[in-house]
């Protein structure tokens, strides 16, 4: 039986691990390669690296981080941030990542999803979605709108429709981040997550708001997420991944507990 996945997300800026709240006020909190190795040893099922570097020099440093991770960590990991073309995808996949996550780049040019799936296989292409709650309207009937640029720019796209479009274009997975919940530690947006998991047949990763293991169990049991993204709950040492998994497994969720 397929296990639900716990995926720590590492934001990397200029080669260093960083963490912000609601995409603002980032502080450096460590070395991404060492941290990734620690999570690997603790039983992380996958790791996500998000490059929030702006400069091209920083991009080179980031790709070096990806290569070092790939030579030390033997579980899948994906890379997001700044991926706007098939060439960007190829660079991170060649550096050793299994998957790449397209977000703003796919909003601006949806063909990047189908081109990436054709070149590398659907399993390589994760559609990353940042979503905010808005008033329901004719344009946004679900009340969930896709946003880009870290939540600063509204796209006028309904999140549920965009998820379906991404699936149709060939995305192998969706990473669904609630900007409202991000960094709050009040739990995932279960309503949003359930709406998306009902609308597509590809796996969905719940993201934004994890503050305790119950939040993750809720995302799996109530919202039918396939995986849960976490950050501060482990970055600051509140829980180890093993502790999280034990709590979640006690709720009857199938977790990988041997590694």
């Amino acid at each position: 039986m397929l296990s639900k996945r716990i995926i720590p997300c590492l934001d990397v800026r200029d080669g260093k691990l960083t963490k912000g709240v609601k995409f603002q006020g980032n502080v450096d909190i460590g070395d991404p390669v060492e941290t990734a190795r620690m999570y690997y040893e603790q039983g992380a099922d996958e790791i996500v690296f998000y490059d929030i570097t702006a400069s091209s020099e920083g991009r080179g440093i980031f790709l070096d981080v990806v290569e070092r991770v790939a030579s030390q960590i033997f579980i899948p990991f994906s890379v997001g941030g700044g991926i706007n073309s098939v060439a960007d995808m190829r660079a991170v996949l060649c550096a050793g990542a299994e998957k790449c996550s397209v977000n703003s780049g796919a909003v601006k040019n949806p063909d990047i999803i189908s081109e990436g799936a054709a070149a590398f296989g659907a399993q390589c292409v994760v559609l990353g979605m940042d979503v905010k709650r808005v008033e329901k309207s004719a344009q946004i009937p679900s009340g969930f709108e896709v946003v880009i640029h870290g939540g600063r720019k509204y796209t006028g796209m309904d999140a549920i429709e965009w998820a379906k479009t991404g699936e149709a274009l060939g995305a192998g997975e969706i990473c669904l981040n609630s900007i409202d919940a991000d960094g709050t530690k009040d739990g995932y947006d279960l309503e949003l997550t359930r709406k998306v998991t009902k609308s597509v047949r590809i796996p969905v990763i719940a993201s934004g708001g994890a503050g305790n293991p119950q939040h993750m169990a809720d995302a799996f049991l109530q919202a039918k997420a396939s995986a849960a993204l976490i950050a501060s709950i482990v970055h600051y040492g509140e829980f180890t991944i093993r502790q999280l998994k034990e709590h979640i497994a006690a709720q009857g969720v199938h977790m990988r507990t041997t590694w």
């Binding site: 039986m1 296990s3 639900k4 099922d45 399993q123 192998g172 997975e173 590809i202 796996p203 396939s226």
Partner: peptide, 11 residues
């Protein structure tokens, strides 16, 4: 619930 495809993850 119907299975999701791809089969992605640990088993």
């Amino acid at each position: 619930t119907p299975i999701r495809v791809p089969h992605m993850g640990w088993n």
